[in-house]
Computed example of a mutant assay.
Amino acid sequence: MPATSIPSFDELPVDKTGPFLNAWGLYGKDDELGFLNRLTDDLVKEAAKEIQSGTRISLNWPMDAQNDLPFFGRQIFHKQVYQKPPRIVNDDTWTFNTQSSSQWDGLRHFAYQKEAKFYNGVTLDDIHCDHSTVIGIGAWSEKGIIGRGVLLDYEAWREQQGKPAKDAFKAGIISLEELKAVAEWEGVELKFGDILIIRSGYIAQYNNSSREDLEALSKIMPPTFLGVEQSEEMLRWIWENFSAVAGDQPSFECWPSTKPYMLHEVLLAGWGCPIGEMFDLEALSRQCKKTGRYSFFVASEPCNVPGGVASPPNIIAIQ
């Protein structure tokens, strides 16, 4: 759906009887793609022009990266490799929480908290009834999350500008003003339907933290993290520009929220906008600095799990 076909931010909510800023019914009452409807064939075809060298960069953090200390009390990754005698053959089994490493938050993950409604008004009962797959993440696997990606390398900009570091493990905001300054510094042009990716420096700080520090941080409840600000200006910017948002932080937005609402409510439950979290952006940051280009082609296919809540992103950036 092109930019000219969507209502303006000031015309929201679409469903006037629904919650704050919702776009329920914009793509039909049974829609399960939300913002991914913006990724038209023409947009993806145009995005392929971003491929100039063919250099490929994975944005997937190892699935066991948090080892036995995952945040938000989530289950750890388990892998069992076993032989199948009498042949010299191995199989393995994996057991994991889909949000314990790099992930796309799907539409079943987060509801409007006061109204207890998910995207398009879906309820907990709709999700938890027998054999329900409504708004499951498996619907995203058919065409994937594929288009033009833009890295806003906040951490590199901050370092170059000589600005004080922000602790990624403490509640703090990356403001819209700062993100716009990053884009100007990079010389990157935003285009409607872009996949926004923000590097806050979280993964770099995590990798430089001792086990003792991580163990102490994992016990903080609720956890605290640096992320983008909660504001209507931030939401307007996302509505007017992007098809999905992501970052290297565990919550994308500042956590806990600094406002009475959370971006997760509007993005997931209101608009059907995928939220990517804990993407490993360190190699992408180096590549973009090397080429001086902060846009690229992105290909991501969430796992085809009907009725799933979230998924590893299986994501590659190509320049």
Rank of each mutant, 00 (worst) to 15 (best):
277 E>F: 07
96 F>A: 03
91 D>S: 10
262 M>F: 05
31 D>E: 10
278 M>H: 06
104 W>S: 00
268 L>F: 06
203 I>W: 12
243 S>K: 11
169 F>N: 06
185 W>N: 06
23 A>E: 09
18 G>D: 05
205 Q>T: 01
154 Y>S: 05
101 S>F: 07
79 K>P: 02
254 C>G: 04
105 D>V: 13
83 Q>N: 02
42 D>G: 13
101 S>D: 10
265 E>C: 01
241 N>M: 09
179 L>I: 08
309 V>P: 01
233 E>P: 01
11 E>M: 08
208 N>Y: 13
137 I>Q: 13
219 K>D: 05
282 E>V: 12
267 L>P: 06
34 G>R: 11
1 M>R: 13
299 A>Q: 13
167 D>P: 08
119 Y>P: 01
120 N>T: 06
28 G>L: 02
304 N>Q: 11
105 D>C: 09
277 E>C: 15
197 I>H: 02
93 T>F: 11
306 P>V: 02
180 K>Q: 15
40 T>S: 12
211 R>Q: 13
8 S>M: 07
173 I>E: 09
301 E>H: 08
50 E>N: 15
23 A>K: 10
93 T>N: 14
194 D>C: 10
180 K>M: 12
15 D>A: 08
244 A>D: 05
48 A>F: 01
313 P>G: 07
316 I>M: 14
25 G>K: 02
135 I>F: 14
275 I>T: 04
228 V>I: 14
127 I>E: 00
274 P>H: 08
175 S>L: 11
31 D>P: 03
7 P>R: 05
305 V>I: 14
134 V>D: 05
98 T>G: 11
177 E>N: 14
121 G>T: 15
247 G>P: 03
288 C>L: 03
55 T>I: 06
55 T>S: 00
19 P>V: 02
271 W>K: 00
125 D>V: 11
89 V>L: 11
186 E>L: 07
124 L>D: 10
112 Y>G: 07
167 D>I: 06
121 G>S: 14
106 G>F: 10
158 R>P: 00
116 A>K: 09
273 C>Y: 04
159 E>P: 11
26 L>I: 02
49 K>R: 13
114 K>Y: 07
262 M>T: 00
290 K>N: 13
275 I>D: 08
56 R>I: 00
271 W>E: 01
33 L>I: 00
290 K>H: 13
184 E>I: 03
199 R>C: 03
19 P>R: 02
77 F>Y: 13
272 G>K: 05
138 G>S: 02
9 F>K: 01
290 K>E: 15
111 A>C: 12
111 A>K: 13
70 P>E: 02
46 E>D: 15
270 G>M: 02
267 L>F: 01
263 L>R: 02
212 E>I: 05
8 S>N: 11
41 D>L: 09
212 E>H: 09
126 D>V: 14
194 D>K: 04
302 P>V: 05
113 Q>A: 11
153 D>L: 12
145 I>L: 09
284 L>K: 01
201 G>K: 03
30 D>A: 12
114 K>I: 06
12 L>T: 10
280 D>V: 03
135 I>Y: 14
301 E>C: 08
48 A>S: 10
99 Q>G: 13
235 L>V: 09
8 S>A: 11
46 E>M: 08
133 T>Q: 10
12 L>Y: 03
113 Q>I: 14
229 E>T: 15
197 I>C: 01
